[in-house]
């Protein structure tokens, strides 16, 4: 983690008609930092992520991701981020390497780069020997790890992960987090949402959203001391209930 801010958000407001989905959000995320973006269903997490990814425009406020302004250059942002969600995953009827080739192509990687990155990433997952297998037949945990590898294939500066471990078994879930750590050590900034509160503790920083606002932001350990709770789970319940 260095001191360079990769995500800078200042007074971000997003309204849908009268409803304020994001109310004056301000925060910074540093290069290589793992940010756990937590909040109740409907607290406005998804809205904020869409804005950070350049898919949706804020009503007001300043948002910059990887050095680009989210309002002026959303397409530059898209080149510099990776995205993975539980809903969006890879093509089930293609093989592993076909999926890599396709998504590499989307991000404009050359054939050589694609071959090289595919090899690297699959070897890291120990799945190189399975590269010609159709995805459908693989276990969920593998698919999630592959989806993550595809999301970082074009070497993005920021990776957005939306509930990446939902429904994954406890061992694979932890192996997934080891991938996240490795990416972070390579200098990638990780922006992750989860409903597993123990995973929140693996993050460098957590942000807790309640009703459109960020109510708590900081290192898990410091937040637990500040609010005098035993776990992030309890902090979540404490903040969301009030």
């Amino acid at each position: 983690m260095t001191n360079k801010n990769i995500i800078e958000v200042e007074n971000l407001v997003k309204k849908f008609g009268k409803f304020t989905a994001n109310d004056q959000l301000s925060f910074n995320v540093k290069k290589g930092e793992i940010l756990g973006f937590l909040g109740a269903n409907g607290a406005g997490k998804t809205t904020a992520i869409k804005i950070l990814c350049g898919i949706s425009a804020p009503t007001s406020g300043k948002v910059s991701v990887a050095g680009f302004d989210a309002v002026k250059h959303p397409e530059r942002i898209k080149q510099n981020i990776g995205y993975m969600s539980q809903k969006f995953s890879l093509y089930d009827d293609l093989t592993i390497s076909e999926n890599f080739r396709f998504f590499g192509g989307i991000y404009g990687l050359s054939r050589k780069q694609i071959r090289q990155r595919t090899g690297e990433l699959l070897q890291r997952l120990d799945l190189y020997d399975y590269r010609n297998r159709i995805l459908r037949s693989l276990p969920l945990g593998w698919k999630q790890k592959l989806a993550f590898s595809v999301a970082i294939m074009h070497d993005p500066q920021v990776v957005f992960l939306d509930e990446p471990t939902s429904g994954v078994d406890p061992i694979t879930r932890r192996q997934f987090w080891e991938l996240i750590y490795e990416a972070s050590e390579e200098g990638k900034t990780i922006f992750v949402t989860t409903h597993y509160m123990d995973e929140a503790e693996y993050c460098d920083t957590v942000s807790m959203m309640v009703a459109g606002q960020i109510r708590a932001f900081g290192k898990p350990r410091e937040l637990k001391e500040e609010y005098d709770v035993a776990s992030i789970n309890n902090l979540f319940i404490k903040l969301a209930r009030n």
């Binding site: 109740a40 269903n41 409903h195 979540f236 319940i237 969301a240 209930r241």
Partner: peptide, 10 residues
Amino acid sequence: TTGVDAVSRK
């Protein structure tokens, strides 16, 4: 409780 936040789960 899948996909439901911690408070609603409780």
